[in-house]
């Protein structure tokens, strides 16, 4: 067997020379970019579809979620506050041309959170912490009208549709979060995901300004809440409500511009807040 020899074979001829970490990084970044684009497209589509859910269905869904809204008021003063908020809301809603099947329900919460929010089924939650920061009824009306406008524009149900699509897509893709989906359907995880986009906020602002103008004849104090927020932001404090909201300075500028356009020679003074509304 002398005519045979066994030459040394060079290393690495059967293996791609890619570094495993480079391969990994390329795959992970490429595939996550793909997933993000797909989920984003899906969530936009779901939002468009959710807009067409009848409001009666949305109310039924909100009712089936169990105890996710604040408890009904127990003390006399809380009842009084809730009644007052509901009356003001009804007056505002009267000027906003809500469809007849779209009643707005206000819930008062004595929590110190500086926030107000609109959620599914035409429910609006107003926190005592917010009322305490407002100088007049006009400022409170602006915030309420903003939340009513969200309901009228169907923003909560759109946000729910988007959140649902994202959750469903992610859980079916990766198989993780089956528990999270159950929780979500149970409504526990509902509130944090109901965030609105910038354009939704701007649309709600302009509807709210029109409603306040129609109700009071002027929009004095409408920017008051945002001015308070701007002050606080400079003190490095950002209320939760403004995480997704347009830049506060821009909103103030837009409200002032609207006010200037609708200014009248004899401006009525702002309506003061009722004494029982402020925390002792």
């Amino acid at each position: 067997m002398a005519e045979y020899e066994n030459p040394e074979i060079p290393e690495g001829i059967n293996v791609s020379p890619t570094h495993p970490l480079k391969d990994f990084a390329l795959l992970v970044s490429g595939i996550s970019a793909l997933i993000i684009v797909a989920v984003l497209a899906l969530s936009l589509l779901a939002g468009q579809l959710a807009r067409h859910i009848p409001f009666a269905q949305e109310r039924a869904l909100a009712a089936s979620l169990g105890r996710w809204l604040p408890e009904p008021p127990d003390s006399a003063v809380a009842k009084q506050r809730q009644h007052y908020l509901q009356t003001l809301t009804n007056r505002l809603a009267g000027t906003m041309a809500l469809p007849p099947e779209m009643p707005i329900t206000v819930h008062y919460s004595s929590s110190q959170t500086v926030n107000a929010m609109a959620t599914l089924g035409g429910h609006i939650v107003v926190f005592q912490g917010l009322i305490d920061t407002l100088p007049s009824e006009n400022a409170l009306a602006m915030v309420l009208a903003h939340e009513i406008a969200h309901v009228r524009h169907r923003d909560p149900v759109v946000a729910m549709g988007r959140g649902f699509a994202v959750m469903l897509a992610l859980s079916s893709l990766a198989g993780f979060g089956d528990g999270a989906l159950q929780q979500w359907l149970g409504g526990v995880g509902m509130l944090p995901i109901l965030s609105f986009s910038r354009s939704q906020e701007e649309a709600a602002d302009s509807s709210a300004l029109q409603a306040v103008l129609d109700l009071y004849g002027h929009v004095g104090d409408a920017a008051a809440f945002f001015e308070k927020v701007a002050e606080r932001q400079s003190a490095a404090y950002v209320p939760t409500m403004f995480n997704t909201h347009p830049d506060v300075d821009q909103r103030i500028a837009r409200i002032r511009e609207f006010a200037a356009r609708h200014a009248k020679p004899e401006q009525a003074p702002a309506t003061p807040l009722r004494a029982f509304l402020k925390a002792a």
Binding site: N14, V15, S16, T18, P20, D23, F24, L27, G30, I31
Partner: peptide, 22 residues
Amino acid sequence: FFKRFVANLRNLVGGRVSAYES
């Protein structure tokens, strides 16, 4: 575990599974 994960990702897009080649 690492190779398996990379190969599973590779399954989605296709191409040489260099993790398994070696």
